[in-house]
């Protein structure tokens, strides 16, 4: 620990007035040009983040509308908040083989680090630009497949860039 001695003659009044000056300067600036003001009247006004903002998760879908996720659980393994739960099952199509019958994210535990998105080998999970998680008391904060892949504002789901059929055609 370092101990500093207070100067004997304190001239603290000068910085205080300096601070007041700054406050009034901004006040006057905002009063006369309100358009440049930074503060928003949330929730009436919303800030628009860029499309790369990491907000609520989206599970992408294939061309036929089924989930892209292969239930490999790499996202769940990578998640530092341990908030992803997946139950895998055998798919009827041997070329798909494994798929999730349930996929849940406990969004209140999520720290929005984006590690799940990074871990996914098949572009099945993305973090979308939505950022408002607020909901009423008693709402369900454990998002399931229906919400993650097919919620209304996704308008039919987001398509993954990797598709099984194309992959097989390319001989991969």
């Amino acid at each position: 620990m370092s101990v500093t001695k207070r100067p004997k003659k304190s001239r603290y009044l000068i910085p205080i007035f300096g601070g007041m000056l700054l406050t009034f300067k901004i006040l006057l600036k905002n009063l006369f040009s309100r358009k440049k003001m930074l503060t928003l009247n949330y929730p009436e006004e919303h800030y628009k983040y860029g499309p790369r903002f990491k907000g609520n998760h989206i599970l992408t879908v294939k061309k036929d509308g089924s989930l892209r996720c292969t239930a490999c659980m790499l996202c769940a393994t990578n998640c530092p908040a341990n908030c992803i739960r997946i139950t895998a099952d055998e798919h009827a199509d041997p070329n798909v083989e494994k798929y999730p019958i349930s996929y849940e994210i406990d969004i209140l535990r999520c720290v929005f680090c984006g590690y799940c998105e990074e871990a996914c080998p098949v572009d099945a999970i993305r973090m979308g630009p939505e950022w408002q998680t607020a909901a009423l008391n008693g709402s369900n904060f454990v998002y399931d497949i229906k919400h993650l892949a097919h919620r209304e504002n996704l308008k039919g789901g987001v398509q993954s860039v990797v598709d099984d059929k194309e992959r097989h055609k390319a001989g991969i």
Binding site: E90, P94, N95, E97, H168, G171, I172
Partner: peptide, 9 residues
Amino acid sequence: EDKVKKRKV
């Protein structure tokens, strides 16, 4: 070359 596809499951 492309991979040889074989039977799965």
